[in-house]
Design a protein around this nucleic acid. Sequence first.
DNA 1: GTACACAATATTGTCTACAATTTTGTAGTC
DNA 2: GACTACAAAATTGTAGACAATATTGTGTAC
Lengths: 228, 228
Amino acid sequence: MYNADEAAGAPTAIICEKIWLAIAERRLRPGTRLKEEQLAEIFSVSRARIRQALTALERDGLVTIMPNRGAFVSEPSVDEARDVFVTRRAIEQRVVERLCERATVEDIERMRSHIDEERVAGKVGDLSAIVRLSGGFHLLLAELSGSAFLFGILRDLVSRTSLITAMYRSNHLHNCGPDEHMAVVDRIAARDAAAAIREMAEHLHHVEAELDLDEEKDQPRDLRAALL
Amino acid sequence: MYNADEAAGAPTAIICEKIWLAIAERRLRPGTRLKEEQLAEIFSVSRARIRQALTALERDGLVTIMPNRGAFVSEPSVDEARDVFVTRRAIEQRVVERLCERATVEDIERMRSHIDEERVAGKVGDLSAIVRLSGGFHLLLAELSGSAFLFGILRDLVSRTSLITAMYRSNHLHNCGPDEHMAVVDRIAARDAAAAIREMAEHLHHVEAELDLDEEKDQPRDLRAALL
DNA sequence: GTACACAATATTGTCTACAATTTTGTAGTC
DNA sequence: GACTACAAAATTGTAGACAATATTGTGTAC
C-alpha cells in the first residue's frame, strides 16, 4: 500500500485510486463537491492531471461532472442502485458459467487464497483492505473467466457498487462475506454450473438486501423535490 | 448530418463521432496511426481537444493509446472479436427479456419506425446511415429496456462491433438486416420472451458468422509474430 | 421592505509554450 | 563492411496562463 501522506507527484491512476478509496470508505460522502484546484494542491499535482483523474472517475460513474459547475461525488438513485445489481447478476452469471468450464486448479487456488486475504483483513479490521478485497474477489473471477469485456464491465459495476454501498448502508463490513465467496468457489471447483450460478445470485441478492433501498425510495435529487 | 468540410471549432463529441464514423466506414483502417497535431489541423482545433477525443475513443475501444508512442486505430484480435459477441449475447438477452415485460405500444412503434429508416437507408445505399442505424437499433432496444447500464454497456459493445465488422468483413451491408430486427420486435410485441431471446441470439450469431473469424486465426499483433 | 439588476469573485474550460521520451538518421570504430 | 554509440528530429506528455461562465454579494429603485 502507498503511504497517503506521500502523495506528491502521483500519476493519474494513483490519484483515481485514492479518490475511489476515499469514496468507498465514506470519507468522501456522495454529493461532495470536488474542486479541481483544491485537489491539485492536496495531491501536489497540476490541475490538468486532476481533470484527467476526474474524467476517468466520471467514466466509472463515481463522480458526476456538470459543465461549468464542477465535479461532485455521484449520488446514485435507488433505481440506479437496483439497476447495478440487475446488471451484475447478468454479468456474473456468465462469469461463473464460464469459470465452471474453464477454470484450472491454479485458478481455483488463486480464488481461495484471495478469500484467505479477505478473512485476514476482516479479523484485523482493516477497513481499507476489506473494501478493496471484497470487490476484488468478483473482479478476480471475471479476470479468470478469460473475457476481457466481462472483466471490464464488472470493474465498472464493482466501483459503482462500492459507491452504492457507501451511500445506502450504515456499515459496510458485512457485505461480500468471505463465506459466501467460498461457497461459490466450491461449486466452481465441483464444476456444478447451475449450483455456482445459484450461489452467486444468492450472494448478490444478500448484498443488495442489506441496503436500505426500500425506505428512502425517492431521495431528493434537487432542492425543489427535497423541500416541497 | 454535419458537413464534413466545415469542421472548424467542432466540440469534442463531434470529433469523436467523425473519427468513429471514419473507422466504421473503413476510411480509417485498423492500425492507422493518429497523429495528434495532424488531427488538430484537420479539424481546426487545438491539440488538447484532440487528446480529449482520443482518450474518449480509447475508452470505447476504438483506438489504442501507447504511452509516448501515440494513438492507433485498434486492431481487435479474433479472440477479442468473439469475446464481444459473447458479451453482446449476454447483455442483449437481458435487454430483450426486460422489453418483453416492460415495452409499451409506443416503444414498439419506435422500434418499427427505426427499422423503416434502416430499410430506406438500405434502398438508397447510404453507407454512413446504414452503419449508424444498424447499431442504433440495438441501442434503441437497450434504451427502451429502462436500464441505463445495459444501455451504456451495449453502447461500448456496438462501437467495438463496428470496428470488428470493418476489420473482418469485406462488405458491411448484409449485417444487422432489418428483417431480422423486425423478427425480434414482433416477438417482443407478442410478449414471447423465449422466442424473442432466441430470435436475438440467432441474429447475433448471423452477424458473427458473416465475419472471417476462423481463417486468419492468429493475425500478427507484432512484427516478430508476423515475420518468424 | 422587497425585488431586480449589476458587479465582484470564484471556478471551470481552453489554449499555447515547454519538457520528456522515443524514433530515426549518421558517423565512428572494430 | 557491419555494428554500436551518439545526435537530431519528431511526437507525445505536462504545466502554467488566459478566457469564459456561473454564483454570490451589494446597491438601487420602486
